[in-house]
Amino acid sequence: MIEIKNVSKWFGDFRVLENVSETIEKGQVVVICGPSGAGKSMLCKCLNGLEPFQEGDIVVDGISLADPSTDLIKLRQKMGMVFQRFELYPHMKILENITIAPIKVKKMSQADAEKKAFELLERVGIPEQAKKYPGNLSGGQQQRVAIARALAMEPEIMLFDEPTSALDPEMIKEVLDVMINLAKSGMTMVVVTHEMGFAREVADEIIFMEKGSIVERGTDVSFFKNPKSERTKEFLDKILLV
């Protein structure tokens, strides 16, 4: 479904991604972790065509992102993305946040889009918030709306960039529960997170990135039980402690 082939990206002399390769099958959940500045967000943005890269290629469903003639708008409709700081549209009510893209991009009728939006809000557990503004919701609720907004475009792949790291501890679980359900329903997911409980439960593969490259990868068992590099061990000790 997604094939990342030797992707490298520079900002001037500074290399943000270095020969990153990874294959993600349909229905797989891949968790990416690593220290700040490792390039995790950059990789997500590259996957969605929000950032260009200089070398290598990313192929999504047979579409090459390195090809300049690729229609990025079409590509992005295959992928939903969820951000650390929710990024809901503050001037639109929750319902509108979810329906605007289906209406404007997919030319769905307002009635259909709203019906779909209510189903999604039901699915993320907050149908009663539809008529409020994002500013009136808690962080956890906003992030669940953000997930619903992404799902409204019926993507085949969902990208999450640290979806719970701006949340208070008591709200993390409500968001993770939604994500776990999504994973179990067969969604292909790329998740940047340090929530190792989530990784244990649903990840098919865990990747550890540092300084722009993948330094370790493994299925959940191998990754936690016997990390190959000293650096991974150190990092895991640190995040598993807290």
Partner: peptide, 15 residues
């Protein structure tokens, strides 16, 4: 307005 707000809108398929 944060870069990610632009990215969020683009990621839903907006031009």
């Amino acid at each position: 307005i944060s870069d990610d707000q632009y990215n969020a809108a683009l990621s839903t398929g907006f031009t």
